[in-house]
Nucleic acid binder design. Structure first.
Length: 265
DNA sequence: CTACCATCCTGGTTGC
DNA sequence: TGCAACCAGGATGGTA
């Protein structure tokens, strides 16, 4: 559920307390024994965290010496500053000043990895971040027969877009989610990229979205979900135009897609 | 190549 | 009322 805007909101929330500090110790919960190797613990003790970065939905600690700890948030992952010990807490990084960064993930779809020299994007096979200059209309030029919706969810093509923002961006760009990627015209690719950028930025401005599984109860919750045009709004009136249609829900690859069949062609 | 399926996991919801 | 079945969702790996 945390997509790019939620990951960015988390990054911004935790960064000031972490950047420039040193790692004191690494903790993991009972069910994640082995989550840190002996080598990790040895190598990272005392190491300085230079920055908190993000690429797509990945949030990572950049550590001196070209190392990093990358957290993939999955469905319900959160990074919060508090003492570790809740049943859903999976890992924690304790800093020398007493601050603790906790990775809590009650659905356990997320995970974390320590990287030595490799960039997080490389390690996880991610395409360009959706808000970076590396992502543009050219990224969407393709011969692929798959749908534009499934392409947007492919993190190796473009990183950061999940089900929510794929639906919202396609609605904004007036493109039907089941269109084949290869069928998009140049102006549609341009419109889609602009919609993606605009919506992701707008959500970041509001602190991301907060819903169901992903509740930022331990931090300040964003409220961008109130701005959703189609996501989770099945059978409700299509907003933003006078088509008079209702939002439909279709299932593709076991995943819900929300769209307006009148507005999106 | 692509579409589909099950898998991981848990809490909330639905059905009996 | 109580409990079991079912469902959602991101990523992955397997199969048709």
């Amino acid at each position: 559920m945390p997509e790019l805007p939620e990951a960015e909101a988390m990054r911004r929330r935790i960064a000031p307390a972490i950047e420039g500090r040193r790692i004191a110790s690494l903790w993991s919960g009972q069910r994640d024994r082995g989550g840190w190797t002996a080598r990790d613990r040895r190598d990272l003790a005392g190491a300085r965290i230079e920055a908190v970065g993000r690429h797509g939905k990945l949030v990572f600690l950049e550590i001196e010496g070209g190392r990093s700890i990358a957290f993939r948030l999955g469905m319900s992952g959160r990074l919060v500053l508090r003492a570790a010990g809740d049943v859903h807490d999976r890992a924690a990084v304790e800093l020398s000043d007493g601050t603790t960064l906790v990775f809590s993930d009650f659905r356990r779809f997320g995970g974390w990895r320590v990287l030595h020299g490799e960039s997080p994007a490389e390690a996880f096979g991610l395409g360009p971040d959706a808000l970076s200059p590396g992502f543009g209309p050219a990224t969407l030029v393709s011969t692929s027969r798959r749908s534009v919706k499934s392409a947007l969810l492919d993190q190796s093509l473009v990183a950061g877009i999940g089900n929510i923002y794929a639906c919202e961006s396609l609605f904004a760009a007036r493109i039907h989610p089941e269109r084949k990627l290869r069928s998009l015209e140049a102006r549609e690719r341009g419109a889609l990229v602009r919609s993606i950028r605009r919506i992701l930025r707008a959500s970041i401005r509001r602190g991301g979205a907060t819903l169901e599984d992903y509740r930022a109860t331990e931090g300040e919750a964003g409220d961008y979900e109130r701005r959703f045009a189609v996501f989770g709004r099945e059978a409700k009136k299509c907003p933003g135009c006078k088509c008079g249609g209702a939002v439909l829900r279709a299932v593709e690859g076991g995943r819900s897609t929300f769209f307006c069949p009148v507005r999106q062609r």
